[in-house]
């Protein structure tokens, strides 16, 4: 084994724990917090959209249009580097949480909206005919069926989010990817370091995918199935 290889292996071993630590301490919490907040936004937006609640409907449509039509990286730059010029100074963490929450909210709202619309119209009609109110119908009839439809695509967007959080490095957030960049700057081994970072993302996503498919199996087993 030549000296270069020995050196690279040394760097990889030395950097593994810092990278993993950055992942567990920063990437994972950023992902989870943004996802939970994002889902709350998504859910609210979806309900406003399907009930055509005016005038909020127009506002949330505009929000979804903007967020889906502009790059996430550009949004993060506007929040972190742009807003200070009008006096709004946010930390890297807060900027990242806001950016990712808005993103999950917009894409998630479309998933939830589509899931709600996938419930047959006859379900609304039957509930109406029984005298249930609109909100009771949503709560007891439509949402329980829509959630089942929405879970696989929502889980996918969660896994995407894990990877997208690497963009937070661009606004100085010291996540897994940022740490990889720092070590690279010191060691000049970009190929190996970024491969190692990719490997750790892969581990995170694989674990999450496993959890996801377990969840899906459990959901499909519980109770009913469509005929």
């Amino acid at each position: 084994m030549d000296d270069r290889m020995v050196r690279v292996i040394g760097i990889l071993i030395d950097s593994f724990i810092p990278l993993l630590k950055a992942g567990v301490m920063f990437t994972v919490p950023l992902t989870i917090i943004s996802f939970i907040l994002g889902l709350i936004v998504a859910f609210t937006v979806a309900i406003i959209r399907v009930t055509n609640f005016k005038p909020l409907n127009g506002i949330v449509k505009f929000y979804v249009w903007i967020v889906r039509g502009t790059p996430l990286l550009v949004q993060l730059f506007i929040i972190f580097y742009g807003l200070p010029s009008i006096g709004i100074i946010l930390s890297a963490l807060v900027s990242a949480i806001i950016g990712f929450t808005l993103s999950v909210g917009a894409y998630g709202s479309e998933i939830i909206r589509a899931a709600i619309l996938s419930v047959p119209k006859g379900q609304w009609e039957a509930a109406h005919a029984l005298g249930l109110s609109k909100s009771q119908t949503l709560l007891y009839i439509i949402l329980p069926q829509a959630i089942k439809v929405a879970i696989p695509p929502i889980a996918n967007s969660f896994i995407s989010l894990v990877k997208d959080t690497s963009l937070a490095a661009a606004v100085t957030f010291s996540d897994l990817f940022q740490v990889a960049q720092q070590i690279t700057a010191r060691t000049y081994e970009p190929l190996w370091l970024y491969m190692e970072a990719a490997f750790i993302y892969l581990i995170f996503c694989s674990v999450l995918t496993m959890i996801q498919s377990k969840l899906e199996v459990r959901f499909m087993k519980s109770g009913y199935s469509h005929d």
């Binding site: 379900q123 039957a126 069926q145």
Partner: peptide, 11 residues
């Protein structure tokens, strides 16, 4: 009301 397609709540 009873519908042609039953419209029972499947869950």
């Amino acid at each position: 009301m009873v519908f042609q397609r039953f419209n029972l709540f499947p869950h």
